[in-house]
Design a protein around this nucleic acid. Structure first.
Length: 268
DNA sequence: ATGGCCGCCCTAGGCGGA
């Protein structure tokens, strides 16, 4: 039986952590890895090291210093697309087709500190981005017609069990009602399936990010949030046979503050 | 919320992250 294994990881600088990327690939052997926060200008992606280990295909959308997304693959990538959300010219989306499945790597804006779009332009940008995401997906006919995976750092923890303390985080950006309602509406209207939460149903806590500010003590308090997601089109979601949440990378030396997620699908 | 950090950039204080 042919399968497609897809991983997503906010790597927080791909050049700094390329050896961690390779270690992850060698251990978990995904066909495809979607990365966010590559912080790598176009053309400077460390592809040679990846190719030497068996992942020679790259779709990148990078910029200097901040943001940046990419898809790396064992298998050829076709029809690469880059969407410019909100007309900002920043690198937050790339997609490509692999083994007949379109895969999107997406990085939603963080939104700054203050959850008030009137006084915080970063939060206003985040809400605009989510609204554009809703309209884009609602109009995407291929969700119902073709297999598709949308994954990445959505910077929203939608459900109560997606944060370590729901009540304490209600006024904290990533878990405010305006954000969580927006993400739930996007999911519902798109028809996509949150395969990670389906595999680990509520009320089980499930996190993919822990702040650097907790120091090395991130596990004992476990004050995390589920900011990273894998959504699949319905027919493909029905073929999702495994989901893994890879917490061990958070304990590696100089880790990303996000951990990888993996989903495996049986292909027709 | 997060007390406490981290990575980037015209190398050093400011920006962005969340």
């Amino acid at each position: 039986m042919k399968t497609l294994t897809v991983a997503t990881w906010n790597i927080n600088s791909v050049r700094l952590r390329i050896d961690q990327v390779i270690a992850f690939l060698k251990i978990h052997q995904p066909d495809v890895l979607a990365l966010q926060e590559t912080k790598c200008p176009p053309g400077q992606f460390p592809l040679k090291k990846l190719a030497a280990h068996g992942w020679p295909h790259l779709a990148e959308h990078g910029q200097k210093g901040y943001h940046g997304v990419a898809i790396i693959s064992r298998w050829p990538l076709f029809d690469i697309e880059r969407r410019d959300f909100c007309g900002m010219g920043d690198a937050r989306h790339v997609s490509a087709r692999v083994l007949g499945v379109r895969i999107h790597s997406l990085y939603v804006p963080a939104g700054g500190e203050e959850p008030d779009p009137q006084i915080n332009p970063k939060f206003a940008h985040k809400l605009s981005f989510l609204e554009e995401m809703r309209q884009w997906l609602a109009a995407l006919r291929e969700i119902r017609e073709d297999p598709m995976i949308l994954c990445g750092d959505f910077n929203v923890a939608p459900y109560e069990c997606d944060v370590w303390d729901h009540k304490k985080l209600l006024k904290v950006v990533t878990h405010t009602p305006v954000e969580t309602d927006a993400l739930k509406a996007i999911l519902a209207e798109s028809g996509l399936v949150d395969v990670v939460r389906r595999a680990h149903p509520a009320p089980r806590p499930l996190f993919t990010w822990w702040s650097y500010r907790g120091g090395r003590d991130w596990q004992s308090h476990d004050r995390g949030r589920r900011l990273d997601h894998i959504w699949a089109s319905p027919a493909l979601a029905a073929r999702c046979e495994a989901v893994e949440v890879i917490r061990e990378t958070r304990s590696w030396h100089r880790p990303s503050d996000h951990i990888p997620l993996i989903a495996r699908f049986r292909l027709p």
